[in-house]
Design a protein around this nucleic acid. Sequence first.
DNA 1: AGGTTTTATGCAGGATTATGCATAATTATG
DNA 2: CATAATTATGCATAATCCTGCATAAAACCT
Lengths: 155, 155
Amino acid sequence: MPNKLKRQGRIKELLSTYSISNQDDLLRLLKKEGFAITQATMSRDFAELGVVRAFVQGNVCYMLDPDESGNQIAKLIGFEILSIQHNETMVVVRTLAGRAQGVAHFIDRLNKEEIMGTIGGDDTLLVIPNKKENVPVIIDFIKKLMTENPGRKVK
Amino acid sequence: MPNKLKRQGRIKELLSTYSISNQDDLLRLLKKEGFAITQATMSRDFAELGVVRAFVQGNVCYMLDPDESGNQIAKLIGFEILSIQHNETMVVVRTLAGRAQGVAHFIDRLNKEEIMGTIGGDDTLLVIPNKKENVPVIIDFIKKLMTENPGRKVK
DNA sequence: AGGTTTTATGCAGGATTATGCATAATTATG
DNA sequence: CATAATTATGCATAATCCTGCATAAAACCT
């Protein structure tokens, strides 16, 4: 029975609580909590969650890579965006209530040179192009975000 | 081949662009765009997206119910939350970068009497209880949010 | 380098989800 | 109300997803 979601949620918590240095350690922790999975699944979880091996205070330890987490968020973006409008000089994106900041943040992080910046309110955000000729480019870009499924890198 | 996600995204856009008053109209639009589905699927999409029939300027038209959209977001919350900490008097939730506002907003909307309010920054939010005895209640509550799957109301 | 430990992945089976068809339930209309 | 139009859903099937097992690949360690 797939409890992938619950399990991965717990993994994120555990990783941010303890200092885990190999998959088996975490595996034991999870088993103790009733998640009966194998190392193979764990490995895939790491890949999906964007867990990376990093040096922290001398020794290696697994942690969430913020950039990878960004990739995961990409899957949500399309869900949060309701519509895109624009005029001559800027693009306005409407989102579900309370999500505009998150979407704006995501777009910021993509570092598109055509995008000078974003401003997010509650359910609306403004995307400001570096020059007005780029408005269409930006629209295409955001629309692509909405439909592409950047998920699963696991293979 | 299931393109549910893409399709539902497009549905949200179409609904917020045109004034759609019955499922068949929308069905035709979608077909024109290459989404070859039947009315049955469309009906289920509406249910999942939380599309409601509303009176707008005299005539009926389908639109997204903001409350329902909230339900949808619930599915994402667990994904965005990384960890929960607390002291005697308040609860601190860490989230993926840029998502704290969204999570705070979501929690606000739940109108729990134990929660006096929230403050969201970039990747951290504060949940303020009405009295410190309720800290544990709030923690439980948020943890439940993280693992429950409130999804699918269809059928 | 050789051997050992740790991590990733091809493959297959079982579970779950998505969807169409047919039809029931509901809603609108005369 | 009766009938037509619209929308919802039971059932069956195809498409996907999740996971373990076995094993390959990579990282580590003398």
